[in-house]
């Protein structure tokens, strides 16, 4: 579980849940009407709400409704996952629904940044590898997947894959500095120095 305090994220093992489709946007991950909240608690029940349930509450076919994926902690997706809005409510909802890592073909930039800032690795695999893992998990949802960040590899059953993650994200997860507030605040003097050389911070006063 991503804690409030930044801890190292090095390896994760768990079962997976595949949600197929390209360009799955943040409005699908969590519809805006469930963002009328002042905390992130309780968002898990709204993950993929409108693709999981009809308006009258009848369940629709969706992996998140399938018992065989209960307890899965690794989400498997395709291309440009998390496009659209900057709402951190999207990865927060997934996290509250039990997701600790996302593996996909590619991610929208803000979504990947939000995941990392929560200590959730959002890691990319080549398309053919991604499809192979999805097929394997659909065939056997009990298959354990291990993500090893230091070696940038994923093990799924007897298969091993190499993944990519932007080096800065990888480093901050492994070092446990993904919660960046204290890291940034360590450089307080330099923050003030930088502000000091920006003319607009001083109202463009000459000599300031």
């Amino acid at each position: 579980m991503a804690a409030t305090n930044s801890t190292a994220v090095k390896t994760l093992t768990g079962t997976a849940i595949p949600v197929r489709g390209n360009d799955i946007d943040t409005d699908q991950i969590i519809p805006a009407r469930y963002m009328k909240v002042v905390t992130f608690e309780g968002l898990g029940q709204y993950a993929f709400r409108d693709v999981r349930f009809a308006e009258d509450g009848t369940p629709k076919p969706h992996p998140f409704n399938e018992e065989k994926y209960n307890g899965a902690s690794i989400l498997l997706v395709n291309r440009n996952f998390g496009c659209g809005s900057s709402r951190e409510h999207a990865p927060q909802a997934l996290n509250k629904a039990g997701i600790l890592a996302v593996i996909g073909e590619s991610f929208a930039e803000i979504f990947a940044g939000n995941c990392t800032a929560m200590g959730i690795p959002a890691i990319a695999l080549a398309s053919e590898d991604m499809l192979q893992i999805m097929d394997a998990v659909e065939a056997d949802p009990t298959v354990n997947i291990t993500i090893d960040l230091p070696s940038t590899t994923i093990t799924a059953g007897s298969h091993r894959y190499s993944f990519t993650l932007p080096p800065a994200y990888l480093n901050s997860l492994i070092a446990g500095t993904w919660d960046s507030t204290s890291v940034l605040l360590d450089n307080l003097n330099q923050i003030h120095e930088t502000a000091g050389r920006l003319p607009y911070v001083h109202g463009f006063a000459k000599g300031a």
Partner: peptide, 8 residues
């Protein structure tokens, strides 16, 4: 401001 250890 600076380059962080992570590379960011």
């Amino acid at each position: 401001v600076t380059t962080l250890e992570s590379g960011q």
